[in-house]
Design a protein around this nucleic acid. Structure first.
Lengths: 225, 225
DNA sequence: GCAAAAGTGTTTAACATACACCCATGG
DNA sequence: CCATGGGTGTATGTTAAACACTTTTGC
C-alpha cells in the first residue's frame, strides 16, 4: 500500500479499535479521528490504540473512546479480531475491534493534539480511511443491522424519552427500508419494550406525539423482525 | 490461582485457541489436549498456541489444529477474543478463540510429545481445564446452538451422506430437546437444504433409511427454527 | 382552515404446532 | 412373526402483512 515505513514493533502487539455509531440528521453516522502521522496523514480512522499490560480488552475500549474522542457511557460490545499480517505498516498489530452505540443528543467531541480532528461521518459517505478501518466500520454496521432484528439494542441509540416515530425511524435508517407504522407499534407493544409516560412532545406544528421510555435499558434477546 | 510462575513474555502476545466439536455416541464432544507443563500439568486445554509473525489469525487456527491434534479440513470461524490480564500465568496473553466443527467418522487423532494426550470429552463432562478454556468451550457451545437455528451449519457435523434421523439427532443433541419428526422434515424440505440420493442405509434391523446429501456444503443463512 | 404528523383495527395469508398409524427390514 | 426405527398428512392456532382514515396541534 505504502512504501518504506519503519516497523516500530518487533513482535505482534494488541490494539483495540472502536466503531462507534449514532443517528444524526436522519442518517447513521460513525465517529472518526483524523490522523497526523505518516503514511496516513490526513486520513481518518476509528478511535483506537494499543492496550496496556494490565487492562482487559473491554476496559481498553472504554479508555480509548474517552481518550481519543471524549466519549463515554456507551453501549459497547466486542465485534471481531482483525489480524491480517499486512494490516498495519508499523508492524504486526492485531486489532480487536469493538462496536459502540450512543444517542446523538448532547455529545461533546474532544480533539486531542495527537489528532487533527474528530468528526461524525455518514456511514454511506466515509472519507479515505487508514488501516483496514473501512472494513471494520462495515462489519460493525452489519452487526448493528442484525442485532436490531433480534434484540432491543435500539435503546442505546435513543434518548431516555422518545417518540415511537423516532424509534421507528431508527429502524428505518439502519435497515434502509420503510416499515409499516401500525405493525411496528403492534410488535413493540406486544413485546412490552416501552412504556408510555405522561408527557408529550412539544413545539411541533402538528399533533404532539406521546413520549415513551424503555422498560429496560439493558440488552435483551427478543424476536422483533 | 497458582503461585509464583515466571512470566515468560514481557509484552502482550497473541494466541489462538480452538474449541472443536463433533458428535459421537449421541453426545456433543470437544477435543482437548492434556498439558505437561506447570502449573497446568495434567489439566486439559483446547488446542492452541502463539501466532507466528506472518500468518493471519485464520491460518494460525488451522495450523494449530493440525499441529496439536492432527485435525484438518474443518469448519472454522472466529469466536471471541479473550483478554483478561490474569488469564494466563505465563504473562499477558490475549487469545483469539475459534470455533470448529467436524464430522466424527474417520478422524485420527495425533498426539505430540509436547502434550500428554489428546481426547474427545463430552461437553457436559469436561475435565479440569487450564486457563479460561472451560469458558471458551462454553461460549463456543452457545454459538453452535444459536447457529443451528439460523444457518445450515449442521452440514459440518454430518458425513457426506446421512439419514434425516441422523440430522435430526444432531439438532436434538446440541439443543438438548426432542423435536417432532414430521415438522422437522417438512422444514428441511421446504428450505431445500438436502436432496435424496439413490441409496439406502444398510445393516440395521429395521426398515432401511433413505440417504441424503446437502445441496450446498457452505454456510448459508436460513431460518430453520 | 390548512398543513403536518400522530394515532388507531381488521382482514387475509403464511407458518408453526400438535398429533398416530402403517411400512420395510433383520433376526 | 416380532421388534425396531422409517416414513408420511391434516387440522388448528398463532403470527405476519397489507391496508386508510380520523385526530390534534401550530400557524
Amino acid at each position: 500500500m505504502t512504501a518504506k515505513v519503519k516497523r516500530k514493533y518487533k513482535f505482534a502487539v494488541m490494539a483495540v479499535d472502536v466503531a462507534i455509531f449514532t443517528i444524526k440528521e436522519n442518517k447513521l453516522h460513525s465517529l472518526l479521528i483524523q490522523m497526523k502521522k505518516k503514511p496516513f496523514s490526513g486520513m481518518w480512522a476509528a478511535p483506537g490504540g494499543l492496550i496496556r499490560g494490565t487492562e482487559s480488552l473491554d476496559i481498553a475500549a472504554n479508555r480509548l473512546l474517552l481518550e481519543k474522542a471524549g466519549v463515554k457511557n456507551v453501549y459497547l460490545e466486542q465485534l471481531y479480531a482483525f489480524g491480517e499480517p499486512s494490516r498495519d505498516p508499523f508492524g504486526r498489530v492485531v486489532s480487536v475491534a469493538y462496536f459502540a452505540l450512543i444517542p446523538s443528543r448532547g455529545i461533546i467531541l474532544k480533539t486531542t493534539k495527537e489528532y487533527a480532528d474528530v468528526r461524525w461521518f455518514p456511514v454511506k459517505k466515509l472519507p479515505k480511511m487508514a488501516y483496514d478501518h473501512k472494513k471494520i466500520i462495515g462489519t460493525a454496521a452489519k452487526r448493528l443491522q442484525a442485532k436490531l432484528g433480534y434484540t432491543n439494542i435500539v435503546y442505546s441509540l435513543l434518548p431516555k424519552e422518545f417518540t415511537l416515530t423516532e424509534m421507528q425511524e431508527a429502524y428505518e435508517i439502519i435497515l434502509g427500508k420503510k416499515m409499516d407504522k401500525r405493525n411496528f407499534r403492534k410488535k413493540i407493544f406486544s413485546l412490552k419494550l416501552v412504556k408510555k409516560i405522561a408527557k408529550k412532545q412539544q413545539g411541533e406544528a402538528n399533533r404532539p406525539a406521546n413520549l415513551y421510555k424503555f422498560t429496560a435499558r439493558k440488552l435483551k434477546i427478543v424476536e422483533i423482525l
